[in-house]
Computed example of a mutant assay.
Amino acid sequence: MDKQTVTIYDVAREAAVSMATVSRVVNGNPNVKPATRQKVLDVIDQLDYRPNAVARGLASKKTTTIGVVIPDLTNSYFSELARGIDDVALMYKYNIILASSDENHDKELQVVDNLTAKQVDGIIFMGNQISDELRESLDRAHAPIVLAGSVDEQRQLPSVNIDYVAAVTDAMNRLIQRGNKRIAFVTGSMDESINHDYRLKGYQQALSSARLNYDAGLVFQTDYSYRAGYALAQALQDVKATAAYVGDDELAAGVLNGLTDAGVDVPADFEVITSNDTRFTEITRPRMSSITQPLYDIGAVSMRLLTKLMNNEEIGERTVVLPYGLKKRQSTK
């Protein structure tokens, strides 16, 4: 069947569902049984159906539209990456569709399917977890994908990052050199590869080199919010920690203020080092020491890598690792 002539009617007939159901699947409407959605998506794949007339007309030309999936629009880390992506996209005259997944796995799948239905030419994905379902969704997009500030432990998808293991090891060494022996590890869910396979590994490596025992009681997983960090102050005192490495700046600001309000003197009695060097590090008192990342560059390099993939240009390295640093401020001695 010529793909230019495949209609929604053909998909409905092949999948033995109504046209309304096909329409719901194409538009990412959640009110479709998973088995039915899968059946329709398989038929769409098989027939190579282009969901809308405009996109069909442009099947031979490029619509030059990029889908950018962002987990949290309010998180400075992701918005700084998005700025780098946007500037390079503008330079190459690509349109951007920015879609927020609200750190919700089901919404993430829906957002990727929506972008696929909109016939985007490429996708930049910022998220903390690449599940098998997400890999399938990204595969169905039939478009190049680049991960920005996100890791793929299977190293299948092109990505732009820093060396998170080395960065956390360095941050921990700073705290250990100041005589801290009970250092808390505070971050998001351990289901996320960036936390479990990278940051935690850096934390454990530093402890091991310093001949300090790893204590699971010092590991705290929570959500990336100020409120969550603030609520941890008491627990950190209860486990007799004297310092903390924190995986997100907003979370770290909560930890810092929670401790200060509980009468703990930072940094004299408790040191805090955070991860992303966003504006949160400057607006707390004391200001926070942090791992530094070239956030804007991670976004810009991701977008440039995507343009090369879309145009089938030669690319040297699919996993791009940019340099990081450590910035000393007042939350460490």
Rank of each mutant, 00 (worst) to 15 (best):
K181D: 03
K181C: 01
L147S: 13
I162D: 13
M172N: 04
L175T: 04
E133C: 07
N180S: 08
A148W: 02
S150N: 10
D163N: 15
V151Q: 11
E133P: 06
P144R: 12
L147R: 07
V160E: 09
E153N: 15
D152T: 01
A167D: 03
D139L: 11
R182N: 12
D132G: 07
A166V: 08
R140M: 00
I162W: 07
Y164D: 15
A167N: 06
R178G: 06
I130R: 07
Q156P: 04
S159K: 13
Q154H: 12
P144Y: 11
L134H: 10
A141I: 05
Q156I: 13
A167R: 05
T169W: 07
H142P: 03
L138W: 02
A166D: 13
R135M: 09
D170A: 13
I145A: 06
G149P: 02
S159Q: 15
Q156C: 09
T169M: 11
I176P: 00
D132Q: 14
A171E: 00
E136D: 15
L138E: 09
A148E: 05
S150Y: 03
V160M: 05
K181A: 01
S159R: 13
A166Y: 10
Q129K: 15
V168L: 02
S137R: 15
S131Y: 08
I176H: 03
D152G: 00
N161V: 09
N180F: 09
K181F: 03
E153P: 15
T169H: 14
E136W: 04
N161Y: 00
I130C: 05
A167Q: 05
R174I: 12
Y164F: 12
A171H: 01
S150I: 03
P158H: 14
R135V: 11
I162R: 06
R155N: 14
P144K: 11
I130E: 01
V168H: 06
R174S: 11
R174K: 15
Y164G: 14
D152Q: 01
I183K: 10
M172S: 02
D139M: 12
S137E: 09
K181Q: 14
N161F: 00
I183W: 04
Q154I: 04
V146H: 06
D139G: 13
V146F: 04
Q129S: 10
